[in-house]
Every structure is written in C-alpha cells, then in structure tokens.
Nucleic acid binder design. Structure first.
Lengths: 111, 111
DNA sequence: CAAACAATATATAAATATATATATTGTTGT
DNA sequence: ACAACAATATATATATTTATATATTGTTTG
C-alpha cells in the first residue's frame, strides 16, 4: 500500500469537502441565494429585502436567521431597522462567479 | 410605481436564481463534490473512484446517477468499465474557485 | 452459454430542509 | 407607559435528501 504523497490524502480531502459543502448548502436555496445576491450589492434592511425580492416576512426571517447563524452576514441596528450585509469575502467571490456564469445581463450590458 | 430599468426585475432574477440553485444543489453534497473534484482532474472509472475516495459502491452509483441525470458528467464505456468525466465547463470553473478558496494546499505547494 | 465480475437500479428508513401559520420580542414616539 | 410597527422566534406539516440493504443488468472469458 502506498501512503506517500502521490495524491492528496482522502481524510484531508474529506475535511475540505465537508467545509465546502457547508458553504454550498447555504447558497443552495433560492431565497438565501437571492438575499445574498442583493446584499452583495450593499447593505439592506429587512423591509427593503422584502420589497425588492418579494419574499414574505417569515421566510425572510427564517433564512436570514440561517445566514446569521452561519456567520455569513453581519447586522447593524439603526432605529427600528436592522441592516444586513455580507460578512464573508469568500462568499462575495463565489457570488460574483455565479453571477457571471448564470445571470443573464438583461438587454445590452456591454458584455 | 416604477417598473422601469432601475434594477433587474424580480422575475428575471428569480429565474436566474432557480437555475443557479439547481447547480448549487448538485454540488452541495459531500460525495458528489468529491466525485466532481476527482473527475475535474480527469476521467475515472467507478472502481477507481471507489478506491480513491472511499465511497461505497451503492452510494457511488446513486450519486453518479444524479450527476448523469443532471448532465454534468459524460460517460464512456471501455470493456467492463464505465469512465466518467465532467461535461460542463462552468462546473469546472466553480470547482476551481472552490478549490482555491477552501482546499488547503498540503505542505508547501508554491502558494 | 455459463461463471465471474463491473456497474446500475430499486426500495425504504432516517435525517434534513422548506413552507406556512402564529406568537413573541424589541424599539420608537407620544 | 402604551400604541404601532419592525423584526425575531416557534411549531409543525410537507417535501426532499441521504444512507443502506438488496436485486438486476450487462460484459467478458473460458
């Protein structure tokens, strides 16, 4: 048996896969993806997100809760409103790539 | 109300999100991610994947079935073995980014 | 054609995730 | 302090995914 450095060892690969899948699961939900998409454009409060994305409040709250507990968004309270923003730079990189690959530039957008 | 071009309209955004989430769901499973990772390095047959990743045969077959039905892998039969490879260039781009972001280069690897 | 083996398919129990309704907490302005 | 409103929390039915056991299909070689 060859336990030397011919390939990345399986355990290490598994570890990386577990971490990566954690991130991917966060993104693999339409509401959360839309939320992160919108937040990648800049900070938004919940009522803005509700209006801009057409996601109803309880769903919004549940999914923002997921994003908070996973630490991918930061929150800031201002008066009655809580403003959300993307806290993970890596997440922004992934969103940017996904946008480039799958988001149609509506009409002419200087491709 | 302003229905003009101030922002990407919600329906179009939803459509893109639905498609993108479809891709992300494929990736958001540890076994499938490992499979695609390995396949991104080049064509492999099932028994090779089983040995290299330590995934048991039925799981392997089930998850390769998902990848096949989603059209992200291509297959080629050679004798008793079926060789798999990644069929979607976009998938390779995503895998490359994920690798860069989350896969630890073991030991020195010229960063 | 039959044995041996590689791969695929099916079935189902268990675990997760999602949608939706309803209740609670926290902040502001009077 | 209380009314009004923004946000969060909880509960649960439904749907989707995953793990695991078992059966079937297909190919090669004698």
């Amino acid at each position: 048996m060859d336990t030397s450095a011919t390939m990345v060892d399986v355990e290490e690969l598994r570890g990386a896969a577990t971490r990566t899948v954690g991130v991917l699961k966060i993104l693999a939900n339409e509401d959360r993806l839309l939320l992160l998409c919108q937040l990648s454009q800049g900070e938004r409060c919940v009522s803005e997100l509700e209006e801009q994305l057409g996601i109803r409040q309880p769903t919004l709250s549940q999914q923002l809760g997921v994003l908070r507990s996973e630490g991918v968004v930061a929150t800031r309270r201002q008066g009655k409103n809580i403003y959300y923003s993307v806290a993970e730079p890596a997440m922004l990189e992934i969103l940017a790539l996904l946008y480039r690959l799958y988001c149609p530039r509506s009409e002419s957008d200087g491709d």
